[in-house]
Structures are given as C-alpha cells and as structure tokens.
Amino acid sequence: MVRLTVNGEHHELALDPRTTLLDALRDHLGLTGAKKGCDHGQCGACTVHVDGRRVLSCLALAVAQRGREIMTIEGLALGAHLHPMQLAFIECDALQCGFCTPGQIMSAVALLAEVDHRRELTDVAIRERMSGNLCRCGAYPNILAAIRRVRT
C-alpha cells in the first residue's frame, strides 16, 4: 500500500509501482485538476506542491511520496474562498482554454515563496521562473499581470 497525504487528507492506495504521482492523483484520487500535457516534464501542466515546493508530478513516482505533504489545485482554496492567486487569474483573465491553468497557478504560488523579498521579482525574473509552464493559448501577458498583482 502507498500512503499519500494530499490536500491534508491521508490516503492508502494499492498502486502499480510504475504509477506516477500525476496518475495517482488523477486516476486513483479523482483529482483531475493537474493535467498531463506531455508526460515528460516539459510543459508544467502537472505542477503540484510537494512539501511546499513546486514539482512536476508526471516525473515523480507515487511510491516515493511517503511522508510528504502534497497539495494540488483542488486544495488551494479555503472552502469557497479562493487563493489570492486564483482570484488574480480571474481578474486578469490569465487563461483561455484552462488546461495549463492549474499548473500555472501552482507554479506561481510556489514561485512567490521561493524568494526572500518578493519585490526582487522583476517582470523579467517572473517570466524566467515561470518558463517551465507552457501556455499554448498565449495568455502569458495576463498571467504575468496576475502574478504581479499578488506579488505586491
């Protein structure tokens, strides 16, 4: 049995040892917010937090996550109260098709925790640090605007 702690809840799952964290979340826990865009760690759509850091869940094995706190997009809001980053994404229309959006948001939230002083995050720095999250619809300028809004 594999023990997973996801969004504060404990789960015991009988998993094929080949199962990635992404597939465990999507196929075994019904948490389909994280997306599989490439399955190679090249698009960022599967980004979740593991112990507060952003991780590409398609490149992580589920069995290796014992004792770690995993957070997905479904766990980001507090009940009906959206996380400020989710609100900013809505206000800045930082999405189109929405497929990359959970990954963009999880990445953006973690990014703000990666620096000691948020004001060091210039636009250039944000763009660089977000470049692992592809958005084929091209909503990048609005995503940047959303992150800027939460940064300040």
Partner: peptide, 8 residues
C-alpha cells in the same frame, strides 16, 4: 474562469 482556476 472560476471552474478553470479551481481545477474543476
């Protein structure tokens, strides 16, 4: 937008 930013 709301259901998209919440992964729903």
């Amino acid at each position: 937008a709301r259901i998209k930013v919440t992964g729903q």
